[in-house]
Design a binder for these strands. Structure first.
Lengths: 220, 220
DNA sequence: AAATATTTTTAGATTTGTCTAAATTTTAAT
DNA sequence: ATTAAAATTTAGACAAATCTAAAAATATTT
């Protein structure tokens, strides 16, 4: 089956929202898509007709198994293209999202598979997010956000929870990227902020809000 | 200024048609775009309003200077992506056109420039067609079709005039690709067909129609 | 449980790009 | 120079995706 760009964008947004909250409602999807609730309702009917959605009037909705497969293919394309843009074309990792939003809708399956091979079948995109394989399987990794790790332990930044340009700009300022080694020196009870030591840099302090969005992994 | 995919496709088709015949008419554009004359007229009005076209009712039309610039940027993107698909992703050169038709509408200027650099600023695409530079300048090359070169002289295939899959399939069958060395052994007056010798192969005969679509270049 | 607020859906309009069928203009033929 | 043929344009309709405003359903508050 083939889908319009608009349909693919809705499917992808629903997928991301239901990853967080199980079931999705009209208003939150409208907010995510920068559109109006009425437009969402219209599209939901189309997606339901195409059996991509479990949806009943006024009740909320989520993707069917078919819908989930479609979503995972779009996510796969998005993340592979992001990897291409950063690794091959040397874009900054905080500049690639908008371009990948366009590239993810190129339809050729053979293109995706060849791109995957050309890139060396990467498992994670430049933001640390897992890249689904051609069957939609997602690699897993043991991840914790920075507020949950023991003091003094050295860990590796593996992804960021919020990819807004403002967040990415901030990380750049702190000199934090994927793969950066970090340890937490101190936790301040007053506002939850953390004093951290970034590899080869002087200790600094980050807010709880930032810390919650920095995911890391470490051995055992 | 920004253009829709549909507008870009019309602009590009007009560009290719006027390269051949100077001025373009509604029916030939409709045929090229696999659409109806009435749809063409509708779009012409839009393009005229945007100052991309010189167009008067019933008179034929051609691109304005602005329109030509837009066309050249689309052609540039198309040919760079074709080069990428063949050189990096190892697609057969006769399989890339449809995918490049989609990729050519990705809008980021920075993407195009970085892609160009990544590919080593190529001058010709895998079909031998020149790739406009970022200012729209087109590299030139001394080209002749196979019917116009002296007998026995060894020449190099540099482009093909017709890129229909049927033509490309035929060339593949003959084992002719860009860069292949060829010489013409004999010209048959009866039907204009040519006996040719392809490097490392036995002599064979090609029709005049095929010969006219094989462009070659040679020193002095 | 009634009143109020929130969420969601419907009804109807708009824009873009397309179509068919009919009308108009230009070109070619007698 | 009429007439016939071909090319082009207009008129009016349609589908997709969106919107606003109003109605309907659900949730929350007192």
């Amino acid at each position: 089956m083939n889908f319009t760009i608009s349909e693919e964008n809705y499917i992808k947004s629903i997928y991301h929202l239901q990853q967080q909250s199980g079931i999705v409602n009209t208003n939150s999807l409208a907010a995510q898509m920068h559109t109006r609730a009425a437009s969402v309702t219209d599209m939901l009917k189309k997606l339901k007709n195409k059996k991509l959605l479990q949806y009943e009037r006024y009740k909320g909705f989520k993707l069917s198994e078919t819908g989930k497969k479609v979503a995972l293919q779009v996510v796969r394309k998005h993340r592979l293209w992001e990897f291409f843009l950063v690794e091959k074309l040397k874009f900054d990792w905080d500049k690639v999202h908008a371009i990948a939003e366009e590239l993810e809708h190129i339809s050729s399956d053979e293109l995706v598979q060849r791109l995957d091979n050309f890139l060396g079948n990467p498992s994670f995109d430049p933001h640390g997010d897992p890249i689904p394989d051609k069957n939609g399987r997602i690699p897993t990794i043991n991840q914790q956000n920075l507020t949950n790790i023991p003091l003094k332990k050295t860990v590796t930044v593996s992804s960021v929870g919020n990819q807004a340009p403002q967040m990415l700009e901030m990380l750049k300022h702190y000199n934090i990227a994927l793969g950066t080694q970090v340890s937490v020196l101190n936790k301040f009870e007053f506002d939850g902020s953390l004093q951290i030591k970034i590899f080869k840099q002087n200790p600094c302090i980050i807010s709880e809000q930032v810390a919650k969005n920095i995911f890391v992994h470490y051995a055992e």
